[in-house]
């Protein structure tokens, strides 16, 4: 555990926590531009979170302790996930404690706690949101796992940092299997982060909502943490995507402190691009009926399995 790896680790965690709302703001801004609206400030998510923290929390009468601890659990899970994902450097002390399978498990833990908390108060919307979240999740989770498996098979390890290091070492080799899985991953990213073809982050009270339905009973600091965790989740997913599909520029052990200095702006550029792409996808696609969502996820799962078979057939 060198000082460099420790500082990379610390920098990653702090950067993820701080930059995640900014990324959401950036996506919102791009979307507003694409839709010919005047855009809110990129800092708007911070203002929202700050406002919520200052309010008095209102808890439903029937809410149990599970309801109150869930925001902290979900936020903690997302921070831990951010610590494992090699967004800036691949030498992270924490990656030995959790590989990519554990990362998927961590995301599943957060999802399960959110669904349980949504059921806790016992309202119609809460259970509806929980059911739909699990419906999307049970197909998205194995799809994500399959996506990671393809990269794991290519680089012969399930450690995400090692995968990123291996893939960034290749000189722009084209992996047909990764092309399939990139499609699958994009679909999973959209579904898991309540983005447009599956859910709509901009509306409340739509009969098709998923993520917002689970948060209806939350207020003040709990809601702030949940919103922040959702921003972190989006940030994490995009960083997983970057680590798997465009890892070039990530700092590796051999590069020393210079690598880290380079990788931070490179990551920023990649995130700008990813945010714009995300906004574009959301603008050009229409919201699906809720019962088409499993079909979308099944497509993602099949694409990922296809990627796996392509890898085994072609060895690439």
């Amino acid at each position: 555990m060198s000082p460099l790896s420790l500082s990379t680790q610390g920098l990653e965690i702090i950067a993820a926590i701080l930059a995640a709302p900014l990324f959401v703001g950036w996506v919102n801004q791009c979307r507003a531009w694409l839709q010919n609206r005047s855009a809110p400030s990129v800092l708007q998510p911070y203002r929202g979170i700050r406002k919520l923290f200052h309010k008095d929390a209102v808890l439903a009468e029937r809410a149990s302790a599970l309801f109150r601890i869930t925001p902290y659990m979900v936020f903690g899970a997302m921070v831990l996930a951010a610590a494992i994902i090699p967004s800036m450097g691949t030498r992270l002390p924490l990656t030995i404690a959790a590989d990519s399978i554990a990362l998927v498990g961590l995301l599943a833990t957060a999802r399960m706690f959110m669904s349980l908390a949504a059921m806790d108060v016992g309202t119609a919307f809460g259970t509806l949101g929980a059911r739909r979240e699990m419906m999307v999740g049970f197909l998205a989770e194995p799809a994500l796992l399959m996506v990671i498996f393809v990269a794991a098979l290519i680089s012969q390890t399930t450690s995400l940092a090692a995968i990123a290091e291996h893939l960034s070492g290749q000189t722009l080799a084209l992996y047909p299997s990764l092309a399939f899985t990139a499609v699958a991953f994009t679909l999973v990213l959209l579904a898991e982060n309540a983005r447009i073809p599956v859910d709509n982050p901009a509306t409340h009270l739509e009969l098709t909502m998923i993520h917002e339905a689970m948060l209806l009973e939350y207020s003040a600091r709990h809601l702030a943490l949940m919103e922040w965790a959702a921003a972190l989740k989006l940030f994490n997913y995009v960083c997983i995507g970057i680590a798997l599909f465009v890892p070039w520029g990530v700092a590796t052990e051999s590069q020393g402190p210079v690598g880290l200095l380079i990788s931070v702006p490179v990551l920023g550029l990649k995130l700008l691009g990813a945010g714009a792409g995300l906004a574009l996808i959301e603008t050009v696609s229409a919201k699906l009926r809720v019962f088409r969502a499993p079909e979308l996820m099944a497509t993602a799962f099949l694409f990922a399995v296809l990627g796996l078979l392509v890898h085994l057939l072609l060895g690439a």
């Binding site: 008095d56 929390a57 209102v58 808890l59 439903a60 009468e61 029937r62 809410a63 059921m119 108060v121 016992g122 309202t123 119609a124 919307f125 809460g126 259970t127 509806l128 929980a130 059911r131 409340h204 009270l205 209806l216 009973e217 003040a220």
Partner: peptide, 20 residues
């Protein structure tokens, strides 16, 4: 923190049969 009746989008009368 204070306790209040569940909000449920402003629906007034929530009963157990509205859950899944």
């Amino acid at each position: 923190a204070r306790r209040a009746p569940a909000w449920d989008c402003g629906f007034v009368r929530i009963d157990a049969r509205m859950q899944d």
